[in-house]
Design a protein around this nucleic acid. Structure first.
Lengths: 111, 111
DNA sequence: TGATTAAGATCACAATGTGATCTTAATGTG
DNA sequence: CACATTAAGATCACATTGTGATCTTAATCA
């Protein structure tokens, strides 16, 4: 427990991968998901770096998909979140819940 | 907007300082607050490091309190969260809400 | 054949996280 | 009075994570 704490951006990538699902999770839509939801700008390169680190920790697995018959239809590196990755996400959720508790009145419009 | 993104641990320290309030926020209870709520173990030294960095960014201000007539009653370095610090916390809250939205069914027991 | 497009990849450096270690200033005690 | 004890503050180095610059590859289109 707690052995797999992830960084802030790593968590965003895990969440995007979970939302997209194994058939659709690869760097480009991961970038789009994070950008659209948070409004911040994300480099594809940084997603690759992070995917490599997450895979190194065993939190995700990746594999190359099939090339597609479209312009620029290069094979995609698809992503699936492994059970330890899901655990890390759940632990992050628990931590967030614990730390934000009771602050609504102090900060205002958290909820 | 978005200019003051804080790291994961920096955010935990800001939240603890907000919860404790200016009269009670100094390193020792900040450590206790984070440990009790998250269950993770926190070094006082790391809180000092983080307080220095947060103060460097202008997100908090600190000052030395009065020594107390108790054993080990050394002056405490008290902490107050400045308006930019509150903004950073609100931005973090917004980001969390945006990124976690719609994942309840996928992950299970988030809420 | 060369342009265009979608996608993948490496690298270096910056920012943040974290453990080891030490110091200081107060009171208690033999 | 000297020394122990306690609460608190501080510095440092190193590990981990975040991020921009830059380049490559593989597909179709003109």
């Amino acid at each position: 427990m707690g052995a797999n704490r992830v960084g802030e951006f790593e968590l965003l990538v895990l969440l995007a991968a979970l939302r997209l699902g194994p058939a659709e999770a690869y760097a480009v839509p991961i970038v789009e998901d994070i950008e659209m939801r948070t409004g911040r700008s994300v480099r594809r390169a940084n997603v690759y770096t992070t995917l490599q680190r997450l895979e190194g920790k065993g939190l995700i697995s990746t594999w190359m998909g099939e090339p597609r018959a479209e312009r620029g239809g290069k094979a995609r590196r698809l992503v699936t979140v492994n059970p330890p990755g899901v655990d890390a996400v759940k632990e992050a959720a628990a931590e967030i819940r614990a730390m934000w508790g009771g602050l609504e009145t102090i900060i205002g419009d958290i909820a």
